[in-house]
């Protein structure tokens, strides 16, 4: 481990100050399951860990039927997975919170950290995008929000500027006939980084898909919201043809690379497979038989 200092601010303002003063070399420490590894392996240069877990808004999980869900950016996966409101209204988040790493990783890993780490394969991100999550950011100039799909700008890069950090992730309130799902493909049963992942949110109006959001990961420098796939589904009842069209749109949007975790061909193919699987589960969760 490089020579790193540790600070545990007790207010959002203090955290902003520490991060601003520290510049590039000060990093937010949430669960540390990415950050500690990066810092230890000297893949990034860090002087200061700013531990945000003492800040209430970063660890709270709040649900309100009118406002929707607010997940503190540093709330660990196991708490998200155990939250009754998330279980009832946002099963798609349970899908990812229960499969990031193993149980011990979920004891620490947060969705905020997953998002900010901005891995193209981050398993939390497609679900956040599909759900239409907004990212609440605190910084030297106060608060701002960014849509989840606009947050990551490349591998390991995001929209945050000096002194900024993510406070909470806000998902809109659930609607009646809606459902969402997240799936990923890994070669092992657990403990693996996604070769490809995908999430789908469907809202129905009667039989008709009123709106659809389709996101895929690990097929581009950042997780993608595939608008064409959503458009292929929206406006008509779900059918094999629309599902196939959405899958084809996801494959077309994919611009994957060959690396140690998967091949171009495999990833593009899987984008279609996983989107198809997510659509079916999302529809089922919405109470619609595709």
């Amino acid at each position: 481990m490089q020579a790193v200092r540790y600070a545990r601010p007790s207010s959002v303002e203090e955290a902003v100050d520490l991060l601003e003063q520290g510049g590039d070399r000060a990093r937010v420490l949430a669960g540390g399951t990415d950050l500690i590894v990066l810092a230890r392996e000297r893949r990034i240069d860090v002087d200061l860990f700013v531990d945000v877990k003492a800040l209430e808004p970063l660890t709270a999980i709040r649900y309100d039927p009118a406002d929707g869900l607010a997940i503190g950016a540093a709330a660990p996966c196991y708490r998200i997975a155990a939250d009754p409101a998330v279980q009832e209204h946002y099963p798609c988040l349970i899908d990812c919170a229960t499969l990031i790493g193993g149980v011990a990783i979920q004891g620490r890993a947060s969705l905020g950290g997953n998002l900010c780490n901005a891995s193209p394969a981050g398993d939390g991100i497609p679900a956040l995008i599909a759900l239409g999550t907004t990212v609440e950011i605190a910084g030297p100039k106060g608060r701002r929000t960014v849509a989840a799909e606009a947050f990551c700008t490349g591998p390991g890069r995001n929209v945050l500027t000096s002194g900024e950090f993510v406070v909470a992730l806000r998902a809109p309130p659930p609607s009646d006939r809606a459902g969402a799902a997240f799936r990923r493909f890994i070669p092992r049963g657990e403990m693996d980084i996604a070769v490809t992942n995908a999430a789908v949110h469907l809202r129905f109006d009667g039989d008709r898909v009123a709106s659809a959001r389709v996101a895929v990961g690990a097929v581009a420098p950042m997780p993608l919201l595939v608008e064409e796939a959503g458009a292929a589904l929206a406006g008509t009842p779900l059918s094999e043809a629309t599902i196939a069209a959405a899958a084809a749109a996801a494959r077309a949007a994919a611009r994957p690379i060959d690396d140690m975790r998967g091949t171009v061909k495999q990833r593009r193919h899987l984008a279609g497979v996983l989107v198809t699987r997510c659509i079916r589960i999302a529809a089922e969760r919405a109470g619609v038989q595709p």
Partner: peptide
């Protein structure tokens, strides 16, 4: 073992070397 064209190992961690887990 996966090597790049210069002979550098690409997957030198348990996560990327992928030995069987209890679930496999």
């Amino acid at each position: 073992y996966r090597f790049d064209e210069k002979g550098r190992m690409e997957n030198a961690s348990f996560l990327d070397y992928r030995m069987p887990t209890a679930l496999d």
